[in-house]
């Protein structure tokens, strides 16, 4: 039995697959690909499969990790080839590798956000306002956690924030806390910012580009 880390991209139609549904979807893909999966013992054996960082519904993931366990020999190249042959539209295996970092080493994630506004003025206003607000260090919002809803200062979970307006659109690059202990959903940050300015977007695209460790080096 050995652990294998699959890195996949999720975009296009696949962004509408919820995290729960992803589990089923990937289990079936791995079965179709006839990857020699390792199954848990017991009355109802199931394959070992863990998504390290759930991706919220509607967001694009450029490089998302999924750990599986296999039994017997199969090269990483072969696994990748087989999986890509059976993947539904919008999900692509970019890489198959040995897990380098422990799952709990994930501490942050980088996002690229495109927010489209009704006009240039609004976009400009938002880009400037948002950047200075984050710099100011206080942006309180209600956050749902396992222990209920509480008010938190989102800025404490923002490690980088840049916003630039081009035409109607604002391009944001940001690094946010991610992982089991503290985690900030990019959508929550965006909606908190929007409500500060009473602004509304016409359309938004949120892309998670990479997962990072505490020292902001790449999570592998």
């Amino acid at each position: 039995m050995k652990s294998v880390r699959l890195w996949f991209k999720k975009d296009g139609l696949a962004v509408y697959i919820s995290h729960l549904d992803m589990n089923r979807c990937m289990t079936r893909a791995v079965r179709r690909a006839e990857i020699p999966l390792w199954y848990t013992e017991g009355f109802n054996p199931h394959p070992y499969m863990t998504f390290l960082m759930p991706l919220p519904l509607g967001q694009v993931g450029m490089r998302e990790p999924l750990d599986i366990r296999i039994e017997g020999e199969m090269s990483f190249g072969e696994i990748k080839k087989r999986l890509n042959a059976v993947m539904p539209e919008g999900i692509e295996i970019i890489d198959v590798a040995k897990p380098e970092c422990k799952p709990n080493a994930i501490a942050a994630a980088e996002y690229e956000i495109i927010a489209e506004f009704a006009n240039e003025g609004e976009a400009q206003g938002f880009a400037l306002g948002a950047a200075s607000l984050i710099e100011g260090g206080v942006l309180n919002a209600e956050k749902r956690s396992k222990r209920g809803i509480k008010t938190v200062n989102l800025c404490e979970m923002v490690r980088k924030f840049e916003a630039e307006a081009k035409g109607n659109e604002v391009f944001i690059t940001t690094i946010l806390a991610a992982g089991n202990t503290v985690n900030l959903n990019a959508e929550l940050l965006l909606s908190a910012l929007l409500s500060q300015f009473g602004a509304e977007t016409e359309n938004t695209v949120i892309v998670r580009t990479k997962l990072l460790q505490e020292n902001l080096s790449i999570f592998e």
């Binding site: 296009g12 139609l13 696949a14 509408y16 697959i17 919820s18 549904d21 519904l57 539904p88 359309n203």
Partner: peptide, 25 residues
């Protein structure tokens, strides 16, 4: 594939996967 016009509403409805197509097979 859904019509382009629908895109910005998809995340506002319950279970958008009902309306997107693109399933395997």
């Amino acid at each position: 594939m859904y019509p382009k016009k629908l895109e910005k509403f998809l995340l506002k409805v319950q279970k958008p996967g009902r309306y997107t197509g693109g399933e395997l097979n």
